[in-house]
Design a protein around this nucleic acid. Sequence first.
DNA 1: TTTTAATCAGACCAATTTGGTCCGCTTTAA
DNA 2: TTAAAGCGGACCAAATTGGTCTGATTAAAA
Lengths: 160, 160
Amino acid sequence: MIRLSKLADYGVVLMTRMASRPEGVHNTMDLSLLTGLPTPTVSKVLSKLGRHDLLRSVRGAKGGYKLARSPQNISIADIISAIEGPIALTQCMEHTLGCCDIEPLCPSRYGWQVINDTVRRSLESVSLAEISTQVQLFANRRPGTSASATPVATGELTNG
Amino acid sequence: MIRLSKLADYGVVLMTRMASRPEGVHNTMDLSLLTGLPTPTVSKVLSKLGRHDLLRSVRGAKGGYKLARSPQNISIADIISAIEGPIALTQCMEHTLGCCDIEPLCPSRYGWQVINDTVRRSLESVSLAEISTQVQLFANRRPGTSASATPVATGELTNG
DNA sequence: TTTTAATCAGACCAATTTGGTCCGCTTTAA
DNA sequence: TTAAAGCGGACCAAATTGGTCTGATTAAAA
């Protein structure tokens, strides 16, 4: 399987959660309870998303984070690259041209470029809004406020 | 960045190399020299590709591996999933429905499914043939037979 | 028939990466 | 002024990865 780091996974999950109340301010503690993820980890992810202008932080008491733009204008690629850096399947693709010694000879580079572009474009095509509407179908009986007892809602912490 | 394991990276590189002589039999030693990858590693990757019917092994002296089908009929998704298992960005997506306790409640699953399908489809759309024609442009002055001194040709072993 | 060149499989080990925890600091509403 | 929140970095443990080694098997060539 192609590995997405857990942090990036969490990022998508948290953003999805926040998109269910796009105008609200969400704090770390609540999100931690809702998702079952450890509080400091949630905090770390959120602050990264904040630094990349996907979230806006509200400091002080009653603070938290709110979406910086509407879910329609946030793509999955935005979220992933905020946390993991530029989307690329291999290392040499992370940089732009001109940094690799053997580059003019490297017979793989151009192939990888094709592959990476394809994947990146596909992730750019999926918006947070699309995903969170899917979620609504399953969340709408619980009006999505705070602390539910049911833990764990990531794509990660599950197994067969 | 989305991480592809090195082995999968190598898989793509090796297949690309072999696609430049689609009918030929390629042995581990030659491919190792051509790519700069350690021989046992090449061997491990090739045998995995063989077990998934992308390569056909020819044992004994003068043996090696040859492509099991034409490059047009091999997708990047085939290669990656042969080495890494089913293409999925998160663990719970590796299985088919019905294996996760909280599944009926999991608000993320359906979002991930959308994302994964998008990525998988994009990788299925790129064939080995497309990539190796790109390679030809850069390899055609060296008629692509055996051992060149220039090492390292993966998308991985390079940095900035 | 013997030798040699190749695949094949699996065990083992080392090192990198990852992610979780903890700490103390800053900010602001009540 | 206090308490509740974000902020950021240092540190550590553990899981994953990938490279190495060994030996068995196969088949062509001498």
